[in-house]
Design a protein around this nucleic acid. Structure first.
Lengths: 212, 212
DNA sequence: CCTACTTAATGAACATGTTCATATTTGCTA
DNA sequence: TAGCAAATATGAACATGTTCATTAAGTAGG
């Protein structure tokens, strides 16, 4: 009985929530301070005040521990990205406005960001993977929506390919932000300028005559 | 004296070449048979007939060992890609012909390919990294050349942006092949079809009116 | 409060990547 | 050929991610 209530207020559940919070905080602190490889799971466990084995009850492995930390931030950043879209703005301006929060976020900890971007490349298993993939899909869908909005404003060609167009635009972003993070001193504005050029090519197209 | 000659024919150099070959063969065999994580450096050392520590005289770390194996293949594949370009073919057909060898190569060992693609994302240090980056740059340059050829044939707009256009086309390939490798049963033709759609959007463009 | 049962936590043990002091081999000179 | 110096090879030792048999804590019924 009272299983529902116990699931939220029982001592067991409270302890679990508290431990998860402590683990996440300790992991974030050490990942940011020392980088991913240099932050050992033992250090994280000590800082969180739990035993080593306990970490792996809350994250299936170290990579999952990284996404336990990053997912929270990433979801907030995606919220800001969605909020940055303006129905009346030009497609290219909307795209830049939407991607800007992501550049700002990943620019804060370039070393950790590089690792995160690498690990998320083929990240499919583990409890945190689902959350991450959801967030990414939200961003791709946002791109598709921006294309559709521009279509409905008659700014760009109407076709049933807005889905793929959104994916293509997001692909440019993925490659551009990786390129940006490998150049040491590059600012957010540098990155966005380069992104703009890439997106612009997709919007303008290469061929001389539009096909439709 | 005779340093030059010794560098190719001396017993020392011959032994080194032989060991490198044995290490590379053993690593390839075990990576393909067991996958990257499951192939231990100890196994590789035993199969190559060298001591564990010797491995790390020939590769600075396990990742470098992977690229020691992959770089050879990748350079051959890049050769085939360059050879596949036809000056008289349409841009899109040239791109597909050029990327086809890469799809065939990565499709052979999907599990290992996924790992390779992940590791190469931010791969900058280590002796093998330079070789790999050269090969990638060759592919990007090839894309730029294809764009320039199409420009000179008056197929597409002339502008000084062919450099960036080549990068954008290659970006589509990078994302598409990753997507392809995450779908279990997808054939090479499936992948190339999806790639064609993506590239086609870049060539056609989204906007209604060409800017120039 | 006690007892039986379920769930969570622990850390020693294991496997693996990497390093480094030591030993071995090779090339050269006398 | 003997001896020396430089290059190369070795594997025990270390650090770290992960597992799992054992211990502790929490929950519910009597």
């Amino acid at each position: 009985m009272l299983k529902r209530a116990a699931a939220r207020t029982g001592r067991r559940e409270l302890n679990k929530e508290d431990k998860l919070r402590r683990i996440r905080d300790a992991a974030r602190k050490l990942f940011v301070a020392n980088g991913y490889d240099e932050a050992s799971t033992r250090q994280i466990a000590v800082n969180a005040g739990v035993a080593l084995g306990t970490l792996f009850l809350y994250a299936s492995n170290k990579r999952d521990l990284l996404f336990l930390v990053v997912n929270d931030d990433l979801e907030k950043v995606a919220d800001r990205a969605v909020a940055a879209a303006r129905p009346d703005a030009a497609l290219i301006e909307n795209l830049i406005a939407v991607f800007r929060p992501l550049y700002e976020f990943f620019g804060k900890e370039p070393r950790l960001s590089r690792l995160t971007l690498r690990e998320m490349m083929f990240y499919e298993s583990g409890p945190q993977a689902k959350r991450f993939l959801n967030t990414r899909q939200r961003m791709i869908d946002l791109c598709k929506d921006l294309v559709r909005i521009a279509q409905s404003r008659n700014e760009i060609k109407t076709s049933d390919r807005y889905r793929r167009a959104g994916e293509v635009l997001y692909a440019i972003f993925q490659i551009e932000i990786r390129k940006w993070l490998t150049v040491p001193g590059a600012t957010v504005e540098d990155g966005l300028q380069s992104l703009r050029e890439g997106l612009d090519i997709v919007i303008t197209g290469l061929s001389k005559e539009p096909r439709r």
